[in-house]
Design a protein around this nucleic acid. Structure first.
Length: 330
DNA sequence: AATTCATGCAACCGCGCATTG
DNA sequence: TCAATGCGCGGTTGCATGAAT
């Protein structure tokens, strides 16, 4: 035996609210308040709606000072931080963001912010599966997809920070490249965000390794918000896999991806709880990317992904928008 | 131009908690 | 103490819209 319904389902209207209903609701509340009883509210206000529906409409859209539209970087940062600490307690998170509703934040998280995080560790193979039109193009003599060249000298990692779809906006990706989880799981782990390899607006980034510290950012760093250039460099040993991730707009030049690390096994795409790619030698001595798991991110994993950097502020967003620098031990 | 697909968002639903009698 | 009731929250759904094919 379930609980009694909160209202007469047969006699209440469902679906989108009309302007007339909105006006009625707003007018009544401005005159008399909510009356402290949402269940009884519709009858008093002359609305054929469920009380819960009235409450939701008022709280999320009609009450004063509701803020709609784009979330600022600061708001992103707060959401990210709070999610790391308390999880999906949207009402609490909303309490920290004046004018924002829990529903708004929840939707924003589910549709955009989470994707940004997931984009950080999505894999090239995954991209190619879902975007076969993205032909691989090697930047050198190699013709095989995801191939790379190695050398013993300095390393350059060229990539881009723009998304390849409109939903993956750049979010200081250079800072988010690495997570401690990937670091912990294997030496020299490096995550390449989705937007790092496919995009319509190409950029170069270099990652530096100095004294076993991978350094992101620096003088040539780019701002995440404007998509300007960021340069990072990795020294020690160079491997390069030609990225044909340029897509229809980018082509060979834009899609070039170079990457180098100094170890034999490279756990570049170690998504937290998701698919891993490990570059390793095969029997014929060629290095290959190996799928390790499916790409399935849960909230816990995303939380780990966030928290693994120690601070969400450091993870996603640049405090001062002028320099991005992340140092990691490998 | 038509169709399909992807995305974002408003709204709904069910459950747990708090309050009240 | 306990049952009834209402509130609030988080997860999910469905629709509208725009992009891609």
């Amino acid at each position: 035996m379930g609980r009694a319904p909160c209202c007469d389902k047969a006699n209440v209207k469902k679906g989108p609210w009309s302007p007339e209903e909105d006006a009625k609701l707003k007018e009544y509340i401005e005159k008399y308040g909510t009356g402290g009883n949402w269940i009884a509210f519709p009858q008093k206000a002359g609305l054929r709606r469920c009380g819960k529906s009235c409450r939701l409409r008022w709280l999320n859209y009609l009450r004063p000072n509701i803020k709609h539209g784009e979330f600022s970087d600061e708001e992103d940062r707060i959401i990210c931080n709070l999610f790391t600490n308390i999880g999906s307690r949207w009402s609490i998170i909303a309490a920290q963001l004046p004018g924002r509703t829990d529903n708004d934040i929840k939707n924003y998280w589910n549709t955009k912010l989470k994707k940004k995080l997931m984009g950080i560790s999505i894999l090239p193979s995954q991209l190619l599966k879902s975007h076969p039109s993205l032909l691989l193009q090697t930047s050198s003599t190699s013709s095989s997809p995801l191939s790379y060249r190695g050398s013993n000298s300095s390393t350059t990692f060229y990539t881009q920070t723009r998304s390849f779809t409109g939903t993956l906006e750049p979010i200081s990706f250079s800072q988010s490249l690495m997570s401690s989880s990937s670091i912990n799981s294997a030496p020299s782990a490096l995550q390449i965000p989705q937007e790092s390899v496919v995009g319509r607006h190409m950029q170069q980034q270099h990652y530096q390794v100095k004294d076993n510290i991978l350094m992101f950012g620096g003088e040539a760093s780019c701002s995440s918000s404007d998509g300007s250039c960021s340069n990072h460099q990795i020294t020690e040993r160079e491997y390069e896999y030609g990225g044909a991730y340029g897509g229809r707009n980018g082509g060979a030049t834009n899609g070039e991806v170079k990457l180098q690390m100094g170890l034999q096994n490279y756990n570049f795409f170690n998504g937290v709880g998701g698919e891993q790619k490990i570059m390793q030698n095969n029997s014929s001595g060629n290095r290959m990317w190996e799928d390790q798991a499916g790409l399935d991110y849960g909230l816990e994993e995303i939380k780990q992904l966030i928290s693994s950097t120690g601070s969400c502020n450091n993870f996603l967003f640049d405090e001062n928008k002028t320099e991005e620098k992340v140092m990691m031990y490998y």
